[in-house]
Structure formats: C-alpha cells, structure tokens
Design a protein around this nucleic acid. Structure first.
Length: 258
DNA sequence: AAAGGCACCAACCGCACGGTG
DNA sequence: CCACCGTGCGGTTGGTGCCTT
C-alpha cells in the first residue's frame, strides 16, 4: 500500500516562514486551537501543508518556547540523558520545559557531540564534559546530594512519601527539597511516582536542580553499579523510564553521599 | 576587500505508530 | 483484520551569517 501524501504539494509554499505567515498562524491557533493540523492551513488561509504549520508552531511560535543559549546545566543534562536514552530527542526534550526536540537535536549535533569526542580520553566522566574556556566559565558551583532519598512517611502503607534533598557543598544557599509520592510494588521497589514531583523538579525554576540530579545519578551509576548495560534492557521506554528513575532513587537511598 | 570554509539552525522528508471506521 | 488517516519522531538538508585566510 502506498500512503497518500500528507498534503497536496501543488501550490503550497515551502522554505522559511514570513512574519505575516507566522502572525496568521499565531492568530488562528490563539482563536481556534490547532485541532486538525491537516485542515488548519486551509482554514487559516495559509499556503502551507499542515505538517509545516505544526513544525513551525511547536518549534518556534509556541508561547512557552524558551529562547537563548543552553546553560551549562542544560548541556550537561542533555549529555547525561543522551547516554541513558540515546537519540530519543523528544524524550530528552520532555525534561527541558520550553526546549524543543529539534533544538536539542541541533545542539547535540553542533556542540555536544564534538565536546564529548574531543574529551574522550579523560578519566573523570563529569570533568570530560568541560573542555573549553567557555565551558569552564559556565561551570556551576559543586553540588552534592546530602540525602538523596529518605522514606519519611511510615504511616502510609501502600504509598510512601520520600524526599530528595540537595545542598551546596559550601553553603546552604541551594538547599532544595522535593517530595514524591511513590507506590511500592510487590518486590519492595518503587513502581510509580507522583507526576507532581517531576513537574516540580523539571520546572523552569528548578532546571539546574534537575541537571544536578542527573549528573549525580550518573556518577552514582558509574561508581556503584557499573555499566548501564548491567541494568538490563527494557527500562528506557516511555513508561519504563519513569520506573527507571524511581528505582535509581531507591538505590541511591543507600548511599551516604556522593 | 574578497573568497572560501565552517557553524548554526530552521525546515523538510520519510517512516512508524496509534486511532478509527 | 484491514485500510486509511493524523500525528510525532529522527535524520538530513539548505540557507545564512560569521570567521579565517
């Protein structure tokens, strides 16, 4: 079977979007929502295919798009997440509010891949991520986890509330505590996690916290559990990924500090 | 100042997948 | 179960501006 093309190519414009086209698309979506992308350009009066409209909106025009260069924390987190998830850009982008998969993909191909390749011979993996004077300038103060996970709600039988706490090594200025409500499975592991926890951790205000967390988990994995491959297959899919991180929280609870 | 090379990034393309009739 | 459609994803390309020679 041959699929029908996503749109009728004849007469439709391609290439860079004009400001007027952007405005038409923004106005239409603000009034009606995007609904059916395929039907949208015709209804909005745009000579574009629906696919092009969707891409333009999701990668550029959306009001919650975060503009500007990636921070050190973001770049480091991307590298760590790429190690875990591979080229699943949408899954990686989901950890960065306001960033798009396309943007992260571009950053990976233009900056981070080279950065990793260039530093492939170092010993400290985290230090490998820092190579240029520009990177050194962006390096944040060291952060360690003082109490990665603490079960502190014994009164709850089927659901445990645990906290994740970080603090600056030299001061208390960056101390942050998050609460996650977890479900315990039959093996005693954590099988589910409150979505509010993730939205809290990965909110814009706590983006550096999220990056720190990924770095620490990565260090923990490298030092204590060996290669990622030992963890076994099947933990990286969309649903399993949540279980993966939850399990890491549980295991990290046994460590005094990083 | 001009030309060529390079880096960046917006946008396109094709494929896969889930939903629906 | 099948055919089709809509959408999302990842790989790739092409245009533009900057840098180097």
């Amino acid at each position: 079977m041959v699929r029908a093309p996503c749109c009728e190519k004849m007469g439709l414009k391609k290439g860079p979007w004009a400001p007027e086209e952007d405005q038409i698309l923004i106005n239409y979506i603000q009034l009606h929502g995007h609904g059916n992308w395929r039907a949208l350009p015709k209804q909005a009066g745009l000579l574009r295919c629906g696919k092009s409209c969707r891409l333009r909106w999701t990668n550029y025009l959306r009001p919650d798009i975060k503009r500007g260069n990636f921070t050190w924390e973001e770049e480091d987190a991307i590298i760590n997440l790429h190690e875990l998830l591979g080229n699943r850009w949408s899954a990686i982008a989901a950890r960065f509010p306001g960033r798009t998969d396309n943007e992260i993909k571009n950053v990976w191909h233009t900056h981070l891949k080279k950065r990793l390749k260039h530093n492939n011979h170092g010993n400290n993996r985290h230090q490998q991520l820092i190579d240029s004077p520009k990177d050194i300038q962006k390096q944040p103060p060291p952060v360690k986890f003082t109490a990665p996970v603490t079960a502190d709600s014994p009164q709850q039988s089927s659901s445990d509330a645990s906290t994740l706490t970080t603090s600056d090594t030299n001061s208390n200025s960056r101390s942050t505590t998050f609460t996650m409500n977890t479900e315990t499975n039959e093996d005693g592991g954590v099988s589910d996690i409150d979505e509010n926890f993730w939205s809290e951790v990965f909110s814009a205000d706590n983006s550096s916290m999220a990056a720190d967390f990924h770095v620490v988990v990565d260090q923990y994995f490298t030092s204590s559990l060996g290669a990622m491959n030992d963890y076994g297959p099947g933990v990286y899919d969309t649903d399993g990924n949540m279980d993966f991180w939850c399990d890491l929280f549980t295991r990290a609870a046994d460590l005094p500090e990083f």
